[in-house]
């Protein structure tokens, strides 16, 4: 499903984002990517999304060779991924419904498909009643649910979340994490980059720990690595 083979990313300013990473994530897994700021979490996710390409080594995602792929194929790779950000990134001038529908319009879904899928996705994240609200009328947790609905509406094989709870209070964070787990149980691979020690420790999922670009550990049912 996702495979890094000796993948290295050195930025043009000389900073090493990721060094000789070899890792494999199977279909249906739930994986935490953890590590301090600058450890390479974001680089790891960016390589999956083809926002960056490895300077060395290989990255395979959902059958695409990310390290060596024509520009024109990038949108198709991204359609096989759902992405959730810390800062939500919703379109402020569109309602919750339209934000989710927009993701389907982009992949040229029919209006019938849109009318069927969008309420389902909003229902899944528990936001059916707020479909007509604009982002600024929603709480942080609700906005992140809309983002989740948008990420899921096209049925991606992999869901990537970069600090999805970074802007949320602990209670709401847990709601979002529970939703991610539910989504994972439906068969979607979920990859979450996070700082939240309590969540990682409690959920007992696979944990890949990064430090200054190196994979420091990769443990099933891991915990947030102790800095002492």
């Amino acid at each position: 499903m996702i495979r890094f083979v000796d993948a290295t990313k050195v930025y043009s300013n000389g900073v090493v984002g990721l060094r000789n990473a070899t890792v494999k994530i199977e279909k249906g897994e739930f994986v935490f990517i953890i590590g301090p700021s600058g450890s390479g979490k974001s680089t790891f996710l960016k390589l999956i999304m083809h926002e960056e390409v490895p300077t060395d080594g290989e990255v395979y995602v959902n059958g695409y060779s990310v390290h060596d792929m024509p520009r024109s194929e990038v949108p198709y790779l991204r359609r096989s991924l759902g992405v959730v950000f810390q800062d939500f990134r919703l379109l402020p001038n569109k309602t919750a419904y339209d934000n989710v529908a927009f993701a389907m319009q982009i992949v040229e879904a029919t209006s019938r498909e849109i009318r069927r899928q969008v309420p389902l996705a909003l229902g899944l994240v528990g936001l059916s009643k707020k479909a007509k609200a604009y982002p600024n009328q929603l709480s942080g947790g609700e906005q992140q649910r809309v983002v989740l609905a948008r990420a899921l509406v096209n049925n991606p094989a992999v869901l990537i979340a970069d600090e999805p709870t970074g802007n949320l209070d602990p209670k709401t964070s847990w709601e979002i994490m529970n939703l991610l787990e539910e989504i994972n149980q439906r068969g979607t691979t979920v990859i979450v980059a996070t700082h939240e020690k309590s969540i990682v420790d409690a959920m007992k999922k696979r944990v890949i720990t990064l430090d200054r670009g190196d994979i420091k550990s990769d443990e099933q049912k891991g915990i947030y690595f102790n800095e002492d």
């Binding site: 024109s72 359609r79 990134r89 927009f102 982009i106 096209n154």
Partner: peptide, 16 residues
């Protein structure tokens, strides 16, 4: 630019 960025993440074609 934010909207464009979002569209790119969702997988919009360049032409779109």
């Amino acid at each position: 630019r934010r909207q464009i960025e979002i569209m790119k993440y969702i997988g919009a074609l360049d032409s779109f």
